[in-house]
C-alpha cells in the first residue's frame, strides 16, 4: 500500500506563485491524513514569502510571493519553495504524532419545511424517511476540504444507501444551514446561495462566522456527526444564538 501511494506523490507548479503537493490519486482517509499532517506542519512553520495554503482531497496547494521568496530577484523562487516543501515533507513523516480531534456534533432538524426533499430521497432510495435520517446520522464523516462557498465542507463517509441525484432544476435560494444530499455526497450550505442538492434538514448552528477569527466552524481533517433534533430544539438553539 505504501509503495503504491509513493508512486503518486508529486510536486507540480500551479502558475508562477503556487506549488501543489499531491499525495495520491484516490480519495481515501489515509491519503487525506497525509494532507492534514503536511498542512498542520506548514501552519506551525510558515516560511518567509508564504502567502497561504489550501488542503484538498489529495493535495496541499502552497501559495507564495515570488518577489519575497527570491530575495529581490537573487534566487530562483520555484526551486527555493520546492526545496522548503521537500524538507517539510521529510519532517512531517518523522513526526509520528497523529492528529486526533473530537468529533464535532452538528444538530439537524430533519424533514418538514427544513428538509423539503426528505420525502423524495426516501422514495428514491425506497426507504422510509426515518431510515434515511438513521443512515445519515449514524456515521462519522471526514471533512476532506472546505470549498465551493465559505465554510462549505466536502464530507466523506456517507452511506450509499441514501445516495440521490441532484435536483433537475436548482433552487435559486437555499437558506444557510441547509443539509443536503447530491449523489454520494452530503454537505451543509454555509451561506444563502442557489443550489441543486436535495435538502433533507437544517442545522441551527452557523458553520460560517465571518466575525470570528476562525470563520469556518469546520476544517479539512475534522470529523463530524449529525445529531437529529426536534423543531422545538432547533428553535431553542436559534434563540440562544440570537441572545449571545
Amino acid at each position: 500500500m505504501k509503495q503504491k501511494d509513493m508512486r503518486f506523490l508529486q510536486f507540480y507548479p500551479l502558475g508562477d506563485s503556487a506549488i501543489v503537493l499531491q499525495f495520491g490519486a484516490i480519495i481515501s482517509p489515509e491519503i487525506h491524513h497525509k494532507v492534514r499532517a503536511f498542512a498542520n506542519y506548514l501552519q506551525k512553520h510558515p516560511f518567509p514569502g508564504l502567502v497561504e495554503f489550501v488542503p484538498a482531497f489529495t493535495t496541499v496547494t502552497v501559495y507564495y510571493n515570488p518577489w519575497l521568496v527570491s530575495e529581490k530577484g537573487n534566487v530562483d523562487p520555484y526551486e527555493k519553495v520546492l526545496g522548503i516543501m521537500k524538507s517539510m515533507l521529510i519532517k512531517t513523516k518523522e513526526n509520528t504524532e497523529t492528529y486526533k480531534a473530537d468529533t464535532i456534533k452538528i444538530p439537524v432538524c430533519y424533514g418538514g419545511s427544513f428538509g423539503p426533499d426528505l420525502e423524495f430521497v426516501a422514495a428514491y432510495t425506497k426507504l422510509t424517511p426515518e431510515k434515511v435520517i438513521y443512515y445519515h446520522s449514524k456515521v462519522t464523516y471526514l471533512v476532506y476540504m472546505i470549498g465551493f462557498a465559505p465554510g462549505f465542507p466536502y464530507l466523506g463517509g456517507m452511506n450509499k444507501k441514501i445516495a440521490a441525484p441532484r435536483k433537475e432544476t436548482p433552487r435559486s435560494v437555499i437558506p444557510a444551514g441547509s443539509v443536503g444530499i447530491a449523489g454520494n455526497q452530503t454537505g451543509i450550505y454555509s451561506i444563502e446561495t442557489p443550489g441543486g442538492w436535495q435538502l433533507i434538514g437544517r442545522t441551527p448552528i452557523s458553520v460560517f462566522n465571518p466575525q470570528q477569527e476562525n470563520p469556518s466552524l469546520l476544517r479539512a481533517g475534522d470529523t463530524i456527526r449529525f445529531i437529529p433534533i426536534t423543531e422545538q430544539e432547533y428553535n431553542l438553539r436559534k434563540e440562544q444564538q440570537h441572545a449571545s
Partner: peptide, 29 residues
C-alpha cells in the same frame, strides 16, 4: 479529476470545451 485548489488566472476547461479564466472573485477550489 479530484477537486483541488485553483487560483487567479487559472484557465480551466469544462466538458463543453469553452475555457474559463478564473479572476479575482474565483472560487477557492
Amino acid at each position: 479529476l479530484i477537486s483541488s485548489a485553483v487560483t487567479f488566472g487559472t484557465i480551466q476547461v469544462p466538458a463543453e470545451g469553452n475555457p474559463i479564466i478564473l479572476m479575482a472573485d474565483h472560487q477557492t477550489t
